[in-house]
Design a protein around this nucleic acid. Structure first.
Lengths: 179, 179
DNA sequence: GATAATCACCGTATTAAATTCTGTATCAAT
DNA sequence: ATTGATACAGAATTTAATACGGTGATTATC
């Protein structure tokens, strides 16, 4: 055990680049991270210790940010999903941004290019709770209301996909046929 | 082992409701699902087998949908995040919706209440790849272009939070002070 | 109100997996 | 060609997951 930096994703520029085998591993672990190293090795064509080494490296490099339980929002009484556009005064990690992220209902905060400044994703128990959250958000100094979209139904919601596992990086001219 | 339905989230209406201890467990596992049952038990005040039983139940009930590796989008060359509004002809699981979800770059598809029909979340390598993806999406029969927002920077991105662990369910009148 | 049944839990025992260690083939650089 | 580094396999060891049996508390039933 060299440095024991496991678990804390260092901000190194990703130890080394992710090869085809790594992508296969990521593909398996995104789908189910409870598999044993024996089975993981089987699926990607490695021995258990080799698979283990790869995973450790992927963790250390930050390619695997975390291994987490994915919770059903309904189970924790947050069935209502909404996207909210808001205007803020400044850019960067401003105090109002910190205030917004304090709310546990807020899952994502993005700065978008377009007519509004921020796009945030929130989950609440119902429309009443959403209204309450929004009113609290808009009470934050420097935050201005714009628009919000309530999600009626979700058809797809999946994690980041590792992508093509056979060959990588894809040759640059692969983008050509799209035009 | 009664039914051996582990891993496949049955569509039962959540075995039984999630209590305070369950929420503590979810809180730990969302943060790091690689902890041993011994440590999980320690953190929530249970013996390892008891913690194990709880987790098994949470899995079976569907409260824990999955245990997954969270990948850094940059590591798999998808640093560019965008939200795309599109109009589709019909509602429900239409063929155009299925076609859209085929693309590995598409992570979420939501039907929203508002001036557009669908809101999708996509990740690509760069703006060129995004343009290619959009053109392919808009080529899908029944799909009409509307707007897309490119994310400049992301300030928060976290999984569904289990919420308050001390007392649950929260009394209904708790929503009152918000008004 | 007593009794049976169920449930959630703990402690222990067993089994399985994670992890370590050692040796080897492959590739890159000198 | 030689050295060094890397990734790997197989065996050995340590650690954790899982199964088992028993206990107290709560709830349903008579």
């Amino acid at each position: 055990m060299d440095e024991e930096t496991d678990g804390i994703p260092q901000n190194r520029p990703a130890g080394r680049d992710v090869d085809a085998t790594d992508r296969k591993i990521l593909g398996v672990l995104v789908d189910d991270a409870t598999v044993s190293y024996a089975e993981l090795g089987d699926r990607v064509g490695l021995s258990p210790p080799a698979a283990h080494e790869r995973v450790k490296r992927l963790r250390r490099s930050g390619a695997i940010r975390n291994t987490a339980a994915i919770i059903d929002p309904k189970a924790v009484r947050k069935p209502l999903l909404a996207f909210v556009h808001i205007d803020t005064k400044g850019w960067g990690k401003t105090p109002e941004l910190m205030a917004i992220s304090e709310h546990p209902e807020v899952e994502e905060i993005h700065s978008v290019a377009g007519d509004t400044c921020m796009l945030i994703k929130v989950r609440t128990e119902d429309t009443r709770a959403l209204e309450g959250l929004l009113s609290r958000l808009y009470e934050t100094p420097g935050v201005t209301s714009t628009r919000s979209y309530v999600v009626l139904s979700t058809y797809l919601e999946r994690p980041v996909q590792p992508g093509i596992t056979t060959e990588w990086p894809a040759p640059r001219h692969m983008a050509k046929p799209l035009y």
